[in-house]
Nucleic acid binder design. Structure first.
Lengths: 206, 206
DNA sequence: CCGCATCCCCAAAGATACTG
DNA sequence: CAGTATCTTTGGGGATGCGG
């Protein structure tokens, strides 16, 4: 936590708090909700237990994370973001939007994390979604978006029903290629959603 | 550049490209414009020349930065962001907005970098500024904002003229305390600008 | 000078084993 | 389950060297 950069600059300061390796990935995990130590270790495959412990202590020290003990029914302790930690969501979101541009399409070997689809919808679509209801079925994941709100399960009679493999979904989203994509309902509304999220040219034209 | 995180995740991928120590600070520097090697080294006090060289190579490899040779008048080579590198601006901006909340007020010893004020206006005010013209005189820095555009020098007959020390400006901006702040002109417009940038409660209520 | 490459030293990361 | 302890290896920080 010592001043590594020796600059009076909010960016340098932020990076002193959450710029270490793994820190922002821990935050990304905890943005999905409180998690136990072992669950964090499982979600961050190669982290190494000592590093995880160290990072969590640092994040506690700068009040990004708090350790909390759950009430007796299941007396486990969980790590949880503070409000200041939750405020990192825009940072993580912009990193995701930027990173997606140079991320190759998912292959069969890429083991996508369960729950990635609602997470992705929250990150990419929810902030910019037009009114309307969308249901996405990607691989074995299912998620929906209703008037800008992500809902976990299915939705009745959605305006748009999209079905695709993860790879086809990637190409649709990143390159606007419709091969392998099944759309039922209001396709224009879907295009409107894609254009709003618009990672196809948007960030590169800043 | 090897896969350190072994996850198919845009955030992890982004951090593999620009998550190393110093990388985002180099980007922050280059967002102000192309810079020579030595100028970068000067702007990043404790970086160490080997690390700077290594980071620049990595950033070149992932097409965030390009090395360019200036034409004969001054035959120097400069480093410059690619469009993909410039697309990191939202990431740096959100980091700055987040970091500011736990950054203490500047003291006398904090040697602010020349040009910090237009930079700060670009980061915090320009994206959200209402129409109107503002001139800020903070310490020995001077910058203005006209209809959301930052202009380096002075502006004639601004709607708002603000004068303060760096510390007073900090307290005004972060905690909305007006001690030591001189305002001439449309104070309501200034409050509107501050509320739009609003780091006082905005990110903490996300 | 400017733009690095090399060398040395130490701090931190990775891997594994072990404990309350 | 939630870490600590230990060991090895990688990488950063700082100084110096060196060609253009």
């Amino acid at each position: 936590m010592a001043k590594k950069f020796e600059q009076y600059c909010p960016v340098a300061h932020a990076l002193e708090l959450v710029g270490e390796r793994w820190s922002l990935l821990i935050v990304r995990e905890l943005l999905k909700g409180p998690k136990r130590y072992t669950d964090l270790a499982d979600a961050l495959p190669r982290i190494g237990t000592n590093v995880l412990a160290a990072r969590l202590k640092e994040l506690e020290a700068c009040e990004v994370v708090v350790k909390r003990r759950l009430p007796p029914p299941t007396p486990a302790q969980v790590y949880e973001l503070t409000p200041y930690g939750v405020a990192l969501r825009p940072v993580v979101r912009e990193l995701a939007r930027w990173g997606l541009h140079s991320l190759p399409a998912p292959t069969e070997e890429d083991n996508l994390v369960p729950g990635w689809l609602p997470d992705a919808m929250e990150t990419f679509f929810a902030p910019v979604a037009p009114d309307g209801s969308f249901e996405f079925r990607i691989g074995d994941e299912l998620a929906a978006l209703v008037d800008g709100e992500v809902v976990a399960g299915s939705v009745e009679d959605p305006d748009v029903l999209l079905e695709a493999s993860p790879a086809a979904f990637y190409y649709l989203f990143v390159e606007r290629r419709w091969d392998g994509v099944d759309v039922e309902g209001n396709r224009e509304l879907l295009e409107q959603l894609l254009d709003a999220a618009a990672p196809v040219e948007d960030p590169l034209v800043v």
